[in-house]
Design a binder for these strands. Sequence first.
DNA 1: ACAAATTTGTACGTATGTATA
DNA 2: ATATACATACGTACAAATTTG
Lengths: 255, 255
Amino acid sequence: MTLETIVEACLPHFENERLGVPKYARFYNAIRDAIESGRLVAGDKLPSEQELSARLPASLGTLQKGLKALADDGIIVRQHGRGTFIRDQELRYEEIRVFRFLDQGRPLPLTLQGIGIRRVDLDGELAKFFERKECAVIERLVQVENEPWTFNAFYLPLGLAEELLEMAPGDFDGFSIHEYLHRSRQLLTSRFDHHLSAGEFSSAARRALKLDDQTTVGMQWQVHGYTREGKPATFQCFELQPGHRPIELKTQLDR
Amino acid sequence: MTLETIVEACLPHFENERLGVPKYARFYNAIRDAIESGRLVAGDKLPSEQELSARLPASLGTLQKGLKALADDGIIVRQHGRGTFIRDQELRYEEIRVFRFLDQGRPLPLTLQGIGIRRVDLDGELAKFFERKECAVIERLVQVENEPWTFNAFYLPLGLAEELLEMAPGDFDGFSIHEYLHRSRQLLTSRFDHHLSAGEFSSAARRALKLDDQTTVGMQWQVHGYTREGKPATFQCFELQPGHRPIELKTQLDR
DNA sequence: ACAAATTTGTACGTATGTATA
DNA sequence: ATATACATACGTACAAATTTG
C-alpha cells in the first residue's frame, strides 16, 4: 500500500507540536524527507489529494498548497487527471554538486583528482564572504570529457571540514564535496552566485596545470554557495584554460 | 481613491467571458496591465485583500492565489501586517536588458556605442538556435563604469529587426534593444542561458576594441534568450578583455 | 507600555470544472 | 459513459505581524 507508506512517513511531521511550522510546510518537508531517505523515488505516484486529506490531519486546500510548493520547487510533477509523481531528482542532484558542465542541458561526466586539503588564513573577498579569518580549502583538478584540465579550489568553513582535514589527497579523487556536505552535515546549498572573468592564472593553478609560459590568461569562475536561509556556505574558484568548452548556466530551472 | 482606480483597472478583465482564463489569472493580468500602462508604479500600495474581494467578483482565496503568483514572479511584495506593494520594476527591467553587470547585486551604469546593424547568413550554433539561415546582427561597444570596453554582437530574427535595419550606427548609442523589443514588439524574453569560456578574440572584436598583439585571449560570454513559451528570441555574444571586473550571475532571484 | 485596528498568513470544508484513464 | 484526480472557486474563521491611537 503506497498510501500507508506515505501516511506513515508524513504523520510524524504533524504529530509533535512543531512550533510555528505551518501544516502545508510540514507536508512539504515530509515529502522531501521521504525522497531524501529513499522511501520515495523518481516516478512514484503519490496518493490522490482526497486520500491524503482523508488520512492526514490537514484539509484538502492545505495539502494542495503544499503540493503546489513542491511542484514549484521541481520536486514533484502534477498532471491533471493523472496524478502526482515524484520527479527525477537527477538534475537537482547535479545542482547540489554545483560544478556542472552541461552539454545541451545534460550534465557531463567529470574526473576529479585531489591535490590536498589545508587550513588557510583569509583576507579580502574570502574573509568578507565567510565572515571569518580562517577556513579550509580543498584543491583539486577537474576534467570534463576530453577537455583540458581545470584547477579548482573549494573553500568551506572549518566547522564543516573537520573530518575532511583527516583525509589524504588521493581520497578526494572522484569525491563529491557537496554530496558529502549534504549527506553527513545536512548542508543544503540552495542558491549560487557566479562571478566570471578573464584574467591571469594563479600560481597554484599554473603549477597544478603545468602551464607553459605562453598560456597566461584563462577564465576565472567563482561560485558562491548560500543556504536556503541566505547564509554563506561554500566558495569555489575554478580556473579554466583557453579553448575549454563553455560552461552553461541557466538563470531559471526549466520544469 | 486608490481602491477605485484598481477596481476600475481590474473589472474589464473579469467582465467579458474570457474563455478559460481562471479568475486568479485575470486578476494577475489586470495588475500586470496596470503596471504596464503606468496606472500602478513602484511603491504603490494595493487595496487590502478584504477590500478587493468586496469589490471584485472573486473570493478572498482566489485573489490571494493571484497575489501569490504576482509575488512569486517578483511583481509585487507582500508584507505581513503592512500590505501589498508594487515592486520596483527596475531590477526586472535590468533583467530584460540581459546585459547586467552587477556590483553587490546592484546594476551598474553602462555606456553603449553603436557600430552598426546588418543582415548575416547563419551557420553552426547560430543557425541551430534560430532555426533560420539568416538574421540581423547589431554590433556595439559596451562599457561599464571605467572598465575596459567590451565588444557585443546582438543577433535577432529579421522579423523583429525591420525597423532597426533602417537605423544609423549612431542611433544605437545608449539604445536598449531589449527595451525596444519589449515596447514595440511585445517581445518578453523571460529565460536566459549563459555560455561562458576563455578563448581568442574574434577579428571583429579585435578591430572594434583596437587590441594590441599581446592581448589575444579574453572571455566569451553568450546569452541565449528565450520567450516564456521557450521559443528562441535573442542571441548575444560578448567579448571581454582580461582584467575586466567579473560578471555576476544569480541562479535564483532573491526576493 | 498597552490596546485596538488593519492586513497578510494559514486553515477548514465544500462545490464544481476539466483532463485523463 | 464512468470513475479518478487535479484545478479552480467560495465563504468563513482565526493566527500573526504591523501600525495606529
